[in-house]
Design a protein around this nucleic acid. Structure first.
Length: 478
RNA sequence: GCUCCCGUCGUCUAGGGGUUAGGACACGAGCUUUUCAAGCUUGUAACACGGGUUCGAUUCCCGUCGGGAGUACCA
């Protein structure tokens, strides 16, 4: 059997990191088995529709490197891939169920439904549709519809028996029919609910494995029942453990960033985010942790996906981002850093940025650190860190640095080696340790107490900037 | 409430009838060092609880507790 899987988000804004992982697992599984990965847009709730959300979703998936084979803008002869364009299909299927007695028209108003639920909870019963419209004959129903009465279609769930299915991650799951609700399948506006739409689409699109979040586990029995009603083969299911907030509730906004775009704009590499999210619930079975997308494809399997929810731990993501940055060449980093410098309005040539990247690469966590973490590479310092000044700038420093500047001036070759020897010889002349010059010079050049190797930093800055900054510092730090 | 799912260091996890319960992040210490990082070495830290089964359970079974999800004309 060929593998066909799908990621089916609803376009309500941005791509959630939980969604990213669901999409990723689907993608990895498809690629691993030479299968097909499909993107389907589930926009059956008109009230939640957000303009541009679908384009955004597609762009973000593309950014992450999770490419789909079939989808809204990639026809694969199983479309359309946007549910709002498939309304007639759902309607036909709902009617088929009605004809077979597996579904029925319901005319209950929202008010009545609410009242019923209220009464039930008052009596300590489960809130559930009371079957009020179950016995209305099709003829009568048609008359009422003809006269313009608002209605929905509900599935008829048997009162007895149970539904069983096997989940690739959780094993056998079963549930009693009697606790299942007569789920609405077709809403009064003619749109299907999720439950009808997924089943119909997954079947028509020949989905072999339904891989989705654990929040769907409780409604899966209804879906299985629908497959049976239609006489269709049931696909395999894999319900992924949830991604959690630090307090263990389902990962949500208000407790941190959940949008993939947020992490992107904060300077996380797609490689790091994908790698990190892959390891939330899955592991390779050995102690490797850093993976490329291709390696993930090679290693992935549902047997190694865990059952328990996983807290989204930003500290580990930070570490992983560092690792992936270090894995990248300066040339690969350049186009990622360049726009950030542009944003600040700073103008420096590529050759210069390459040198900065070279020096900063080992000490950066997010891409922004190449810029905001070392502004002194782009601008003369105007403020000097107070603590550093108190610690490193002594009354005699000005004279010593002045002397050093004199030596710098006469250097024909201004590189890390010549800078270092000039500094060391100056220190000797004053009979002080090199540190007594290094620290104040660093303060003068960068305005702060720490950063990359001072001599290399000075080399990158260049002689003119170094002399100018020394002059400024002596003026301002007196 | 009811239904379903889950339960190994603070977090991500490996393991599985007999182990010094392993790794990673974070945290502490040390080394290195012109600073800060990085790197290397190292330390602290876990099988939720109670019953079984068994010569032996963290591992298998049951219960309890705890957590989560679902319970919509939202997905």
């Amino acid at each position: 059997m060929s593998v066909r899987v799908r990621f089916a988000p609803s376009p309500t804004g941005y791509l959630h990191v939980g969604g990213l992982r669901t999409a990723l697992y689907n993608f990895l599984f498809a690629k691993k088995h030479n299968g097909t990965f499909i993107l389907r847009i589930e926009d059956t709730d008109q009230s939640r529709k957000v303009e541009g959300a679908m384009e955004n979703l597609i762009a973000t998936l593309k950014w992450a490197g999770i490419n789909f084979d079939e989808g809204p803008d990639k026809d694969g002869s199983h479309g359309p891939y946007i549910q709002s364009q498939r309304l007639s299909i759902y309607k036909e299927h709902a009617e088929q169920l009605i004809k077979n007695g597996k579904a029925y028209y319901c005319f209950c108003t929202a008010e009545r439904l609410e009242e019923v639920r209220k009464q039930q909870s008052l009596q300590g019963l489960d809130p559930k549709y009371d079957g009020h419209c179950r016995t209305i004959t099709i003829d009568e129903a048609r008359r009422r519809i003809q006269s313009g009465e608002s209605h929905v279609v509900r599935m008829r769930v048997p009162d007895e028996g149970e539904v069983k299915f096997t989940d690739m991650i959780r094993g056998d799951v079963s549930i009693q029919n009697k606790i299942l609700d007569d789920q609405v399948l077709l809403k009064s506006d003619g749109y299907p609910t999720y439950h009808l739409a997924v089943v119909v689409d997954d079947h028509q699109m020949e989905i072999s494995h339904v891989v989705r979040g654990e929040e769907w586990l409780p409604s899966t029995p209804k879906h299985v029942l629908l497959y049976q009603y239609f006489g269709w083969d049931v696909p395999k299911f894999a319900h992924l453990p949830l991604l959690l907030n630090p307090d263990k509730s389902k990962l949500s906004k208000r407790q941190g960033d959940v949008a993939v775009e947020d992490y992107r704009s904060k300077g996380y590499l797609k490689e790091a985010l994908v790698n990190f999210v892959a390891l939330l619930g899955w592991n390779p079975g050995d102690e490797r942790e850093i993976f490329s997308l291709d390696e993930l494809i090679k290693e992935f399997s549902f047997e190694r996906v865990g059952k328990a929810g996983a807290v989204f731990n930003i500290e580990k993501l930070n570490w992983m981002n560092q690792q992936h940055i270090k894995l990248k060449s300066t040339e690969e980093l350049l186009p990622l850093v360049r726009p950030l410098i542009q944003e600040k309005g700073w103008k420096v040539p590529d050759a210069y940025v390459r040198q900065v990247i070279g020096l900063m690469k080992e000490r950066v966590v997010v891409l922004g650190d190449f810029v905001g973490g070392c502004p002194y590479f782009y601008q003369d310092p105007t403020l000097y860190d107070e603590a550093a000044r108190a610690k490193n700038w002594k009354p005699e420093s000005a004279e010593q640095i002045m002397k050093l500047a004199g030596k710098f001036e006469s250097l024909t070759q201004f590189d890390a080696a010549t800078i270092e020897s000039a500094l060391r010889s100056t220190a000797e002349e004053f009979k002080i340790g090199a540190g007594k010059l290094i620290h104040p010079l660093r303060l003068a050049l960068s305005g702060v107490a720490n950063g990359p190797s001072l001599f290399h930093m000075a080399e990158v800055l260049g002689k003119d900037a170094v002399l100018r900054r020394i002059g400024n510092a002596i003026e301002r730090l007196r």
